[in-house]
Design a protein around this nucleic acid. Structure first.
Lengths: 243, 243
DNA sequence: AGCGACAATGTTGTGAACAATCCAGCCCCC
DNA sequence: GGGGGCTGGATTGTTCACAACATTGTCGCT
């Protein structure tokens, strides 16, 4: 019907084409627009996104499958709070899958692929020199995604995308560790070199080393967070949308 | 209590469908009750399962996320045909995840866990002696699931369950290779021994060797299938529900 | 005052009706 | 005879209203 409800797009975004409400909800969750454990009432989301409750319901089903929210039978949906333990599990799985893809990438990379990777690494150098941590993180993600694309394993790639969206909240802290970005960049260079040399074993070990350090850094970040707010694990926000 | 739903179970099935229609549909798909590429008409499924179309629609959304079916915008859902190439991708991912879990299992196994594993292996011996291939396959799956449970990584385990349901159609051929079951059993014994010895590295390599052979066998099975029916890749069944 | 039953409220789950869309067959015109 | 447009049936997408369920606040009883 007359979907352009006058108040629906009041939150700043202009003439967005009718994107999937599922994507919009996912974006809102991973960007932290909803607090962990916050209730997601279907009717509220319906008016907020300007779509029917059915679409919201379908989107919630997808997000539930992806592990971003939990749905209890007659009690609605809440954004899922990823525990530190689960973050470790996710990182371990990511570790295993990225190693697999790194091996495949090493065997399948074309010359153009290697050129792209080197370009990204060069850009990471620049970001690091300018102390642009956010830009560095983005390029980091770009580099990994580019490797995924080279490996050309769609099943694993899709899983990694899903995992990433789940653990995004923990990823932010890992860049804050002193000296970590420099070390990270060297590890990435090593990975790219192994891909350029078409050496799967070296690429595997390089990626393993890199992600092992990421795992350590993740643990450091979690411990730092717990040290700062030791009560956070006990707090049950329940920041219900009631205004 | 006896809620007034007089017309809902009119199709004579005395057993109330207490199970989730999503699970029933999944079961029907992985068990081969629906042909690949067969259209899944919502209304038909609705009467077949005795639930409303809304529930069917939700179930299809989940199954779509799991990759068991594909849904095109206004053209309905069909059971997804897994290509040989995708079966390889799935097997590679399974390989990576099972190795991860094998390592974890080696470090975390309690004595009771090891006893269970040895019991399963002994039962596999029996099935093999009796030429009970089906029973052997089931115990094979049981053994792997038991290892998953020991490793206690719920994220990876859930992924493996999903992958298994996707590639089940290809798993059947792998047992037919001559001499394969005997070799498989030895590999499993090696894995269990490594878990009992709490040796993650040995467990990793044993699982890698095992799954490498599984991958080879899968390739052999696919080639045999293609040799037998070289047209199967071209055939577009389209076994539409139109009676 | 403490506690259990009970109604009030809000939210999800479900089924039916309606609109939008696609597909196949058919007809008309060239 | 062949191709383009059209119409009818079938199927999906969406909305709506209502029932089922959980939570919460209230009232009466001990």
């Amino acid at each position: 019907m007359n979907n352009p409800a006058p108040s629906s797009d009041s939150d700043g975004c202009g003439i967005r084409p009718v994107t999937d409400p599922c994507d919009r909800l996912r974006e809102a969750i991973v960007s932290g627009e909803f607090q962990p454990n916050e209730r997601l009432v279907e009717a509220d989301l319906s008016v907020r996104l300007g779509v029917g409750r059915t679409a919201i319901r379908a989107a919630l089903a997808v997000l539930d499958q992806e592990g971003l929210i939990v749905r209890e039978p007659h009690r609605g949906a809440r954004v899922r709070l990823i525990s530190a333990r689960e973050a470790f599990e996710i990182e371990q799985v990511r570790n295993a899958l990225e190693r697999l893809l790194a091996r495949s990438a090493a065997t399948q990379a074309a010359s153009g692929d290697v050129a792209d990777l080197r370009e990204i690494v060069a850009a990471m150098h620049d970001r690091l020199r300018e102390d642009d941590s956010l830009g560095y993180m983005q390029l980091n993600a770009t580099l990994h995604r580019r490797i995924w694309k080279i490996s050309d394993n769609q099943v694993a790639t899709k899983m990694l995308v899903t995992l990433k969206s789940q653990s995004i909240r923990f990823q932010y802290g890992t860049i804050l560790r002193p000296g970590r970005p420099e070390q990270s960049l060297q590890e990435h260079e090593k990975i790219v070199a192994a891909i350029a040399a078409h050496d799967p074993a070296a690429c595997d070990s390089a990626m393993a080393e890199h992600l092992g350090h990421v795992l350590e850094t993740l643990q450091w970040a979690i411990e730092a967070q717990e040290r700062e707010r030791p009560w956070s694990a006990l707090r049950e926000p329940a920041v219900g949308g009631r205004t």
